[in-house]
């Protein structure tokens, strides 16, 4: 992983069209500003992982016959 140090107000540019700015640092919390093309989805990782897990679980079907009976 690339590790870069940034101060408040400094930013990173990703891929020419995404800018991530450190807006505020308060204790152990950092507020980031993200400027990206509007069709680029930005998600909090914990929610992303939750959906990934749900997709994974959805593809692992245990009770197919029981499911068919319900519909």
């Amino acid at each position: 992983m690339l590790a870069l140090s940034r101060k408040k107000g400094e930013a990173l540019i990703l891929n020419n069209d995404i800018e991530i700015t450190v807006l505020e640092i308060k204790g152990d919390q950092v507020k980031l500003g993200i400027q990206a093309p509007k069709e680029v989805p930005v998600y909090r990782k914990e929610i992303y992982l939750q959906i990934q897990k749900e997709n994974q679980d959805s593809m692992n079907i245990d009770g197919l016959d029981a499911l068919k009976k319900l519909f």
């Binding site: 939750q50 959906i51 749900e54 997709n55 679980d57 959805s58 009770g63 029981a66 319900l70």
Partner: peptide, 18 residues
Amino acid sequence: VTITVPQDIKKLSVNLKA
């Protein structure tokens, strides 16, 4: 929306968040 079928069918759910 995707359906998740756990072993306990009574916990059958759909993912309305994604």
